[in-house]
């Protein structure tokens, strides 16, 4: 399977290769953070907003911690939380969406209208509200964002499943007497996998940006844990002095988002069967 992937990658367009390269680079940084980082996560090594130097490659932050170190630890926290959140959000969204499509009727109506109500409230404000009530521990953060984000996944998975449940093979399985779980997992899921995987890549980016914006607003990952969103916020004062420090974590966010999207585009292109003529 891995060799297959390498072969595919070799024939992939340059943009996709670049995307894969970016993602791998970030993953290595996240996994081996303590080995790569020159200093400890919260260690103060110098003055506030020091220039880039051989001592600290990207300079220091607002209280004199090494920015490069913080960036690497930030990758670890931000990416892993975003990943877990996206998986949870997909689990909830797909289960709900498929159930609505397969069972239909009042269950579909009830769930869909509930999701409509959820979606009519701006997600950021909704999240801020809930987080300020429930507190900002990591499990709460993951749970709240996953539930809010799963409404979007619900809409997509219901829509793609609707196209599948009208097929005769689903009717045949229903008439065989199969239960809802079998219909969802064996008949519908394999036929909707392509758009859902593509959506996974996109939603991962959105979740990631969302966590960053929550952190920027002070309700995301709490200090002194390093994370890119809060790093942008904490260092934002530096902009007024013409110091580029806050732009570095912002760039880290931007580059990963672009990398994931390049890979998603490639995947969509492959599975949608769009061929250059």
């Amino acid at each position: 399977m891995f060799s297959n992937f390498l072969k595919e990658l070799k024939n992939a367009p340059f943009a996709a290769q670049l995307g894969v390269f970016i993602i791998i680079l970030y993953l290595i940084a996240a996994i081996f953070a303590p080995l790569i980082a020159p200093y400890a996560e919260t260690e103060i090594i110098g003055d506030v907003w020091e220039e880039m130097s051989s001592k600290s490659w990207l300079g220091t932050d607002q209280i004199g911690r090494d920015l490069f170190t913080r960036l690497i630890y930030g990758a670890r926290n931000t990416i892993s939380i975003a990943f877990v959140t996206t998986i949870l959000s997909f689990f909830i969204g797909i289960c709900g969406g498929f159930m609505a499509a397969v069972i239909g009727g009042w269950i579909d109506q009830g769930m869909s209208r509930f999701v409509d109500i959820m979606m009519s409230i701006p997600i950021l404000i909704f999240a801020l509200m809930i987080l300020s009530v429930l507190g900002t521990s990591t499990p709460v953060l993951i749970g709240v964002i996953a539930v809010l984000d799963s409404t979007r996944v619900y809409r997509l998975s219901r829509a793609v499943a609707m196209d599948v449940v009208v097929m005769d093979f689903v009717e045949a399985a229903k008439l065989r007497g199969e239960n809802t779980w079998y219909l969802m997992s064996r008949e519908v899921l394999p036929n909707t996998l392509a758009p859902l995987v593509a959506e996974f890549g996109l939603r991962f980016c959105f979740v990631f940006l969302f966590i960053s914006s929550l952190s920027f607003l002070g309700l995301g990952i709490q200090p002194p844990t390093a994370d890119w969103g809060s790093m942008v916020r904490e260092n934002s004062g530096a902009i007024t002095f013409g110091i580029l420090t806050p732009l570095v974590p912002a760039a880290a966010i931007a580059i990963l988002t672009i990398g994931v999207n390049l890979v998603v585009d490639w995947f969509l292109h492959k599975t949608a069967g769009i061929k250059d003529s």
Partner: peptide
């Protein structure tokens, strides 16, 4: 009761799950 009545469809393309 379900087992004893089976059905064959008009379009074999849509009656078979292509992923199985």
């Amino acid at each position: 009761q379900l087992r004893r009545i089976q059905m064959i469809y008009q379009m074999p393309d849509t009656a078979l799950n292509t992923r199985q």
